[in-house]
Nucleic acid binder design. Structure first.
Lengths: 111, 111
DNA sequence: ATACTATATAACTACTTAATAATATAATCA
DNA sequence: TGATTATATTATTAAGTAGTTATATAGTAT
């Protein structure tokens, strides 16, 4: 792992997007299909203005995009790797939670 | 992608850790070997108190652990998946930056 | 014991940002 | 046209947090 400063910033920026439960919720609702802001709000419980802001942020970051149809804006994910990142991170968290084999080699980690 | 609220929180928490350049820098310096706080500070340019705080946070989150030897504390990564997450995210960011084939199907993303 | 060094912690400041409320814009419909 | 609806934007407030300074703690060395 040997990143240039700029890459490091960019990487952190990408992780920062995923570091917010509200945005993960939004991504979860549009992971398999595009949805209107209303739809997203109903499913996540987020207020419209709040959801709109998160969506704007993720759009600027190139994570989602939207299609305009009449009054509606349908958002979808355009950076599918964020989904695999979530699944991967989730999996490792679960494994850490209930390890099949207790690893004593790092017991002092707890101190 | 269908997470329980608690899992979502936990997932966001994990990403939040990686969403900070200073912490990515720290992780980069200890990705292949344990290092003392001094060493980390010198390599990253972070102030001692600041590095200490970031390390404390990552220790509480189970991402790093430390070994005490005299006055020194040697920190190491104990959640190696964060490294693969970084590499994976970095890779996809690079790909998005310079796509081999321009994908016009999502041009309206830019609006 | 005293001085020095490594690390942690606490207090503080400054900055960021999430959530909310209010308003603006624009499309639809009666 | 006026009313309604969907979304975006702006302003505001509150909470979180990164960085810094100062101090505490605990090893080490003289």
């Amino acid at each position: 792992m040997n990143f240039h400063p700029h890459d490091m910033e960019q990487l952190a920026q990408r992780f920062k997007i995923l570091g917010e439960p509200a945005r993960l919720q939004i991504l979860a609702t549009i992971c398999d299909q595009e949805r209107s802001v209303q739809d997203i709000c109903h499913r996540t419980g987020l207020h419209q203005a709040n959801a709109s802001k998160h969506l704007r942020m993720m759009k600027d970051a190139g994570v989602v995009a939207c299609r305009k149809k009449g009054v509606w804006r349908y958002y979808r994910i355009v950076a599918p790797e964020v989904l695999s990142l979530c699944l991967r991170a989730q999996k490792s968290l679960k494994q850490a939670e209930t390890p099949l084999v207790r690893d004593n080699s790092q017991m002092e980690a707890v101190e």
